[in-house]
Design a protein around this nucleic acid. Structure first.
Length: 528
RNA sequence: GCGGGCGUAGCUCAGUUGGUUAGAGCGCCGGCCUGUCACGCCGGAGGUCGCCGGUUCAAGUCCGGUCGCUCGCGCCA
């Protein structure tokens, strides 16, 4: 507040514009009656300015900073330093700091050491596409940016650092999404001489502290669900259990059904599963759900509604009273509910019903945390005609390792919050024999394994403690706590969906001189 | 790589079955007002309708292509 009596100062203040930077001197006084504004944090007082200096004047900003009008994201990113001045962004970044700070405090109190690992490392061509960095002294050779510190943290366990953590930047050159950036941050942890129980208990304590920062109370012990049960009941390995719909297996109900679509599928070793849901279900909605089911790979979708005068469904005449009653009992359907049923192979039925469940259901309040455990070790890669590791090839398998690799289980665990995977880890392999066996199961020859991972196999030969750990997606956790759907909202300087940074203009071409030093030449991209 | 949505003033948007001079709110500039804190009043400037091409007497509007942003699929051990 500048009093008009301070004529000169008052006059000069007319030249001030939005976002100018000033220093002001004056007297802080209580506001006069009638001018108090309790909506403002400083609404009780005002600064009676006697003089001020203009420290830096500001151009008119490209968008208004004190308004909550939406602004296109590209413009926000181009002027990110202005965007970050806006209250919601400032709050996101502060929240992120508080989460990181809570993590460090908690883990250090539990004896974890923060140890850095290389950013310039070796490409391990499994998994995601690597970002590559050319070597100048060795033209033709390349570093890769780490997809995660996985192997280094395991080596640290072998070095005797029994509890490691790092807030680690990771890089994956894959197409982006709202929850995926080319570089992202993991809370990376690893512990020696532990089993699943130790790691999960450690994480339960940590997560309690982390969520508390966002005012969310986590259970002392987070519930666990096996992969198999999760796929059956929720049709997903990252279930959002806030949606009050569960998929039921209807194999018993239709084992001897007249309806050939069901009995035929069951006879062929497939499954019949479905769920009940309430809501408005005009015919057109079933048509679009059927279309959706087909686009997800289902052969079809059987539906029906339990109306007061009976069972309304295109297949009504094929189903017996007992079957309808059995279906109601299994799915928990009430009068007026719709039931959706898929008959297909187990994987397709799970996937389709899982998606439909998300389409049809509404999450109910609060938050949901669950550990998904007991994953299969491998999944069949149809294209490559081989087994791929579901988690990663350093995960310890369990089950009968003499049997078909398709039957192996893995000692892996994922933490799922509100239908988003926020962390995943495993107990690792700690002997070279088992590690070689897993590489073999993945179709890697001993020579190939030696070429790619020789350094790991060698390290394992010098006595590696049993160890295991986990990595949490820090960006995703902070986004959840901030109530944002995109992790870009909790990263100070994120990139667009094409991996560009409109602020700096990265990525950008470089001087031919730079390329020459690296022994590189740009080839015209293939035409077309 | 594929599919959906979007692209018009500095910002956020409207723009009819193709039709004359492309509008609004906010911001900006000038003036007035001066107990305001989303001040108020008066006036004004400001447009490559993303870009290229086509159809048409006529294109912001229709068609083809392309670029960018965004959401999703594939991909992401």
């Amino acid at each position: 507040m500048i009093h008009p009596e301070a004529a000169e100062t008052h006059e000069a203040a007319h030249g001030l514009r939005a976002e100018d930077v000033i220093s002001a001197a004056g007297t802080l006084v209580e506001r006069e009656e009638g001018t108090v504004n309790s909506d403002l944090p400083t609404g009780e007082v005002e600064l009676r300015v006697s003089s001020f200096d203009l420290l830096a004047d500001a151009d008119t900003p490209p968008f208004q900073i004190d308004e909550d009008d939406p602004v296109s994201e590209e413009l926000r990113l181009q002027y990110r330093y202005l965007d970050l001045r806006k209250r919601p962004m400032t709050q996101s970044i502060v929240l992120r700091h508080r989460v990181v700070s809570a993590i460090r405090r908690h883990l250090e109190a539990e004896g974890f050491l923060d140890i850095e690992t290389p950013i310039l490392t070796r490409s391990t061509p499994e998994g995601a596409r690597d970002y590559l960095v050319p070597s100048r002294p060795q033209p033709g050779s390349w570093y890769a940016l780490p997809q995660s510190p996985q192997l280094f943290k395991q080596l640290l366990m072998m070095s005797g650092f029994e509890r490691y953590y790092q807030i680690a930047r990771c890089f994956r050159d894959e197409d982006l999404r709202a929850d995926r950036q080319p570089e992202f941050t993991q809370l990376d942890m690893e512990l020696a001489f532990v089993d699943e129980e130790d790691v999960l208990a450690t994480c339960d304590r940590l997560i309690g502290q982390v969520l508390a920062v966002g005012g969310i109370e986590a259970p002392q012990e987070i519930e666990r669900l096996t992969y198999g049960e999760s796929m059956l009941r929720y049709g997903s390995d990252r279930p959002d259990r806030r949606i009050p719909i569960e998929i039921a297996d209807l194999g018993q109900v239709f084992a001897a059904s007249e309806f050939k679509v069901f009995s035929g599928a069951l006879g062929a070793g497939e499954v019949v599963r479905g769920f009940a849901t309430s809501g408005e279900f005009p015919r057109s909605r079933f048509d679009s759900l059927t279309e959706r089911a087909r686009s997800l790979g289902a052969k079809g979708l059987v539906w029906g509604v339990l109306e007061p005068d009976g069972w309304r469904s295109p297949v009504a005449k094929f189903l017996s009273e007992e079957e309808i009653a059995g279906m109601m009992a299994a799915t928990g359907a009430k009068d007026g509910d719709a039931i959706l049923v898929v008959a297909d192979d187990a994987a397709t039925a799970a996937r389709v019903l899982g998606e439909l469940r998300l389409d049809v259901g509404e999450p109910e309040g609060g938050h949901d945390l669950v550990w998904v455990v007991d994953f299969p070790m491998f999944e069949w890669n149809e294209e490559g005609q081989r087994w791929d590791a579901l988690h990663h090839p350093f995960t310890a398998p369990s089950g009968d390792l003499e049997a078909d690799p398709g039957t192996w289980r893995s000692r892996a665990y994922d933490l799922v919050m509100d239908g988003t995977e926020i962390g995943g880890g495993s107990i690792r392999i700690n002997t070279p024999e088992l590690q070689s066996k897993v590489f073999g199961a993945l179709g890697m020859s001993p020579a190939e394994a030696e070429e790619r991972f020789g350094f790991l196999l060698r390290a394992l030969r010098y006595g590696a403690p049993p160890h295991g750990g986990i990595a949490f997606g820090l960006d995703r956790i902070v986004a959840l706590l901030a109530g944002r759907t995109s992790i870009r909202e909790v990263i100070a300087f994120p990139k667009t969906a094409s991996g560009a940074d409109p602020l700096t203009g990265a990525p950008a071409p470089v001087d031919t001189r730079q390329l020459r030093e690296l022994g590189l030449r740009i080839q015209a991209p293939p035409a077309g």
